[in-house]
């Protein structure tokens, strides 16, 4: 909720706190997945595999709204806004740069909240297929969600034929972000 710790906290404690913040966010993605029509019809094994592959990418989309690309600032959950420069000084470098760039591209599309939610569902079911057992079922769900997203976007913007293809082009960006950053190390204290 806040990147700046009281002076009494060691950098180790700050890093533990930062690592912990991912836990509730991941749980929210699991709950979100369960609300996607058709997701719980997949085998439990395949639900787990999609979540393991896709959660980081869904989180990147969710956290976009915290980034202000023009000002290069991030708003944390405590309501405070910090510049990229000050966050870099705390050691939060390359992942933040990549998230700013992605936020700028996604933000420029001007999606409504329901469109973002449906896009996140598409992101999740478009995750890496290795380990999926019933590939056909996952592909059918992906196709249904993409059709729904296309229909929602084009019905609202009948004169803009470029928005939907531009949105789909964000999927490979997310995969790249995932490949580059999901191996970052977190540290959890063992009590």
């Amino acid at each position: 909720s806040c990147p700046v710790a009281p002076a009494s906290r060691s950098s180790q404690e700050v890093w533990e706190s930062f690592s912990q913040c991912f836990t509730p966010a991941v749980k929210e993605v699991v709950e979100f997945a369960k609300s996607i029509p058709g997701f719980q019809m997949l085998s439990q094994h395949d639900q787990v595999m999609l979540l393991k592959s896709g959660t980081f990418q869904v989180l990147m989309v969710r956290f976009c709204s915290l980034f202000e690309p023009k000002e290069r600032t991030v708003t944390f959950l405590n309501g405070q806004t910090y510049s990229l420069a000050s966050l870099r000084a705390l050691g939060m470098g390359s992942l933040l740069d990549a998230m700013f760039d992605f936020s700028e591209k996604l933000g420029s599309l001007g999606l409504e909240q329901d469109e973002m939610a449906l896009f996140m569902a598409v992101v999740l079911v478009s995750a890496d297929r290795s380990g999926i057992v019933e590939v056909g079922a996952v592909e059918q769900l992906q196709e249904n969600l993409i059709k729904a997203l296309r229909s929602l976007i084009t019905s609202r913007r009948p004169d803009d034929g470029t928005l939907f293809p531009k949105l789909l082009l964000r999927l490979p960006d997310l995969r790249t972000l995932n490949n580059q950053h999901s191996e970052k190390l977190l540290a959890f204290r063992i009590d």
Binding site: Q12, S182, E183, L185, L186, F188
Partner: peptide
């Protein structure tokens, strides 16, 4: 002295998901 478990963000995500599904079985 404190000891730490170090894991990647990917492994942490996997761990949370596995725990969630096991809890709800």
């Amino acid at each position: 002295p404190k000891t730490h478990r170090v894991m990647t963000l990917a492994d942490h995500i996997s761990h949370i998901i596995t725990q969630d599904f096991a809890r709800n079985q």
